[in-house]
Simulated scan of single mutants.
Amino acid sequence: EDSCLDVVKRSLKLVQLEGGDGVKLGGVEIPREDFYKIRDRRLAQDGIETIDDRLLPQYLPKYAVRWTDLAPLLRRQRAELSVELTKLYLVNGRAVITPRDLWDLFSKFIAVRAEEYVASVYERFSDIGAPSKRLAEVGERISSLLPSELELRERFARVPSGKLRPEFFPSCVKIAMGGVGSGLRNYAITVLLTSFLSYARASPPPAATRIGDFIKDIPVIRDEIAAPIFEAAERCKPPFFKDQPQEKANIYYHLGFGMTAEPRPEESGKSKWYRVPNCSKIQMSAPPLCDPDELCRKIKNPLTYYFRRLSEHARSGTGG
């Protein structure tokens, strides 16, 4: 157990409750009835009504962890990886937990760190347009353990490029489209909307680097992607381009056409075509944009939300 705790303590500042006449944390006594409530809550959570003496110690409060150490879990959208602060028993800024809670929290930490690492690797390699040989080999090994490509396509087919369907946009995009305040304008308009609307309209493969490879007509870029972005910018308070007119050219820069107000087909690729930020980045950089619904909690990127909704709509056979 000690060796396991040494590993856990690299992520969590863990302290052990004090014994003696009563259970204490930092000199503060935990009422006996609260001690047993913590035990019973965890037993109920695991669906256990009767327990033998060998397993009981796993359900008795034994440790405390700073609630701030749990921050990576507090902001997670996915319920299976999240922790609700209001459900923790706090004493002087520390959450009192059982050994069973500890292993549960630590497993969530491992999952979150793994997700963050995979996301960072994806973003690094997506910039070069193609994965490295080593990453490709790892991907092939993982793919061998997953359902067949045909099965995945049937379940989560990415629809062909076509007219944007705002009714299927995630809430963060809808909020940005409605206009935001001065503190959110740059992120909502330049970072989120520019990337989301362009990738949603073009529907490119993951390795894509130039929007011009998928949308040949500049009128489509100008009227179906840039125009809604400019309209959203005007709805901001104050209007985004009124005091920052250079940002209009910056929109095309983020679409990959360089700093220009009049994009031309041959200029596609002159600058980087910025990708849609993951949900975790939106949460950290612009929390007011994040108002997740049930589907949001199951995905990690606004673009995935949009394609999932489109795919479900197509499979349902609903007209329109």
Score class of each variant (00 low, 15 high):
residue 184 L to H: 05
residue 181 G to H: 04
residue 48 I to G: 09
residue 259 M to E: 04
residue 244 Q to G: 00
residue 102 L to F: 11
residue 100 R to C: 09
residue 246 Q to H: 02
residue 216 K to N: 09
residue 311 S to V: 06
residue 243 D to A: 05
residue 282 I to T: 08
residue 71 A to M: 00
residue 255 L to A: 05
residue 90 L to D: 06
residue 280 S to F: 07
residue 306 Y to S: 04
residue 299 I to E: 15
residue 57 P to T: 02
residue 275 R to G: 04
residue 9 K to R: 15
residue 220 V to A: 04
residue 162 G to W: 01
residue 125 F to K: 10
residue 156 F to N: 12
residue 237 K to G: 11
residue 158 R to T: 14
residue 144 S to P: 13
residue 39 R to P: 01
residue 217 D to G: 02
residue 34 D to P: 06
residue 203 S to H: 08
residue 10 R to I: 11
residue 141 R to F: 00
residue 309 R to V: 04
residue 312 E to C: 03
residue 182 S to H: 08
residue 183 G to H: 06
residue 148 S to V: 07
residue 313 H to L: 12
residue 189 I to L: 05
residue 313 H to P: 02
residue 8 V to G: 05
residue 295 L to E: 13
residue 198 S to L: 14
residue 32 R to S: 09
residue 253 Y to W: 14
residue 147 P to E: 14
residue 86 T to E: 02
residue 186 N to H: 15
residue 282 I to A: 04
residue 223 D to N: 12
residue 187 Y to R: 08
residue 199 Y to D: 08
residue 45 Q to Y: 11
residue 56 L to P: 00
residue 139 G to N: 03
residue 1 E to N: 15
residue 3 S to L: 10
residue 146 L to H: 13
residue 12 L to W: 12
residue 31 P to R: 02
residue 217 D to Y: 02
residue 247 E to N: 12
residue 144 S to Y: 15
residue 275 R to N: 05
residue 174 K to I: 09
residue 43 L to G: 04
residue 201 R to Q: 07
residue 179 G to Y: 04
residue 48 I to T: 10
residue 87 K to T: 01
residue 110 I to E: 14
residue 241 F to G: 04
residue 40 D to H: 04
residue 71 A to Q: 00
residue 247 E to L: 12
residue 87 K to W: 00
residue 144 S to Q: 15
residue 224 E to I: 09
residue 6 D to Q: 11
residue 67 W to Y: 14
residue 146 L to A: 14
residue 97 I to D: 08
residue 309 R to S: 10
residue 76 R to N: 07
residue 203 S to W: 05
residue 77 Q to Y: 04
residue 120 S to W: 06
residue 250 N to R: 15
residue 85 L to E: 00
residue 298 K to N: 15
residue 106 F to A: 05
residue 307 F to T: 02
residue 95 A to Q: 10
residue 127 D to E: 15
residue 288 P to L: 14
residue 59 Y to H: 04
residue 29 E to A: 00
residue 275 R to Q: 08
residue 265 P to Y: 14
residue 72 P to D: 00
residue 122 Y to M: 09
residue 46 D to R: 09
residue 167 E to F: 01
residue 312 E to G: 05
residue 59 Y to I: 05
residue 199 Y to I: 09
residue 316 S to T: 07
residue 303 L to K: 11
residue 179 G to H: 03
residue 87 K to L: 00
residue 13 K to R: 15
residue 94 R to T: 03
residue 158 R to M: 14
residue 136 A to S: 13
residue 266 E to D: 05
residue 165 R to L: 04
residue 303 L to W: 12
residue 14 L to S: 12
residue 267 E to A: 06
residue 219 P to T: 03
residue 194 T to P: 03
residue 221 I to N: 02
residue 320 G to I: 08
residue 116 E to M: 07
residue 4 C to P: 00
residue 258 G to D: 01
residue 25 L to Y: 15
residue 1 E to K: 14
residue 15 V to N: 10
residue 223 D to G: 05
residue 221 I to G: 04
residue 239 P to L: 06
residue 81 L to T: 09
residue 37 K to T: 02
residue 24 K to T: 13
residue 216 K to L: 11
residue 308 R to D: 02
residue 285 S to V: 07
residue 154 E to W: 13
residue 228 P to A: 07
residue 23 V to Y: 10
residue 223 D to T: 03
residue 27 G to V: 01
residue 237 K to Y: 14
residue 37 K to L: 05
residue 291 D to P: 03
residue 135 L to V: 07
residue 85 L to Q: 00
residue 22 G to Y: 13
residue 154 E to I: 09
residue 202 A to K: 06
residue 212 G to Y: 07
residue 32 R to W: 03
